[in-house]
């Protein structure tokens, strides 16, 4: 009887460790428990572009900031500047998306020379 118990416990222990290892590293969960900051770069950019599009409609800077803050970056404006410059550099989005990103970056005080050609202001506002 101790022989069976010994085999059972050791088997379960080793099996569980193996199962946890494989479920954690090579085949991680596809459950719905991800967070916005963990989005792939592509979808982080897409989210940022969508927020910039919303900002183009309502010019609600606090709202845009609040939504971008969900990405939990250290500095939202720096994040937007880096993302916009990268998107410009890689042509990953269309011109309209880039212009909206640039406008939001401008209004957050992060316009850079790389963005300047894409800046479109309305009504003469700075």
């Amino acid at each position: 009887m101790p022989r069976v118990a010994r085999s059972l416990i050791l088997g379960l222990l080793l099996g569980s460790l193996a199962g946890l290892y494989f479920g954690w590293f090579p085949f991680p969960s596809h459950s719905r428990s991800g967070a916005l900051p963990n989005l792939t770069q592509r979808y982080r950019d897409e989210y940022t572009v969508m927020i910039a599009a919303g900002y183009a409609v309502d010019r609600d800077l606090p709202g845009a900031l609040e939504r971008l803050s969900l990405l939990q970056t250290d500095d939202i404006a720096d994040y937007l500047r880096d993302s916009t410059e990268r998107i410009i550099g890689t042509s990953a989005h269309d011109l309209g998306d880039i212009r909206r990103l640039v406008r939001l970056a401008h209004d957050l005080g992060r316009l850079t020379p790389a963005m300047a050609p894409f800046l479109v202001l309305d009504g003469g506002e700075p």
């Binding site: 379960l12 099996g15 569980s16 946890l20 479920g23 954690w24």
Partner: peptide
Amino acid sequence: SLIAGIALGLVLT
């Protein structure tokens, strides 16, 4: 029990 353990570990993850 090894097979059961692997299944248990995978379910937990």
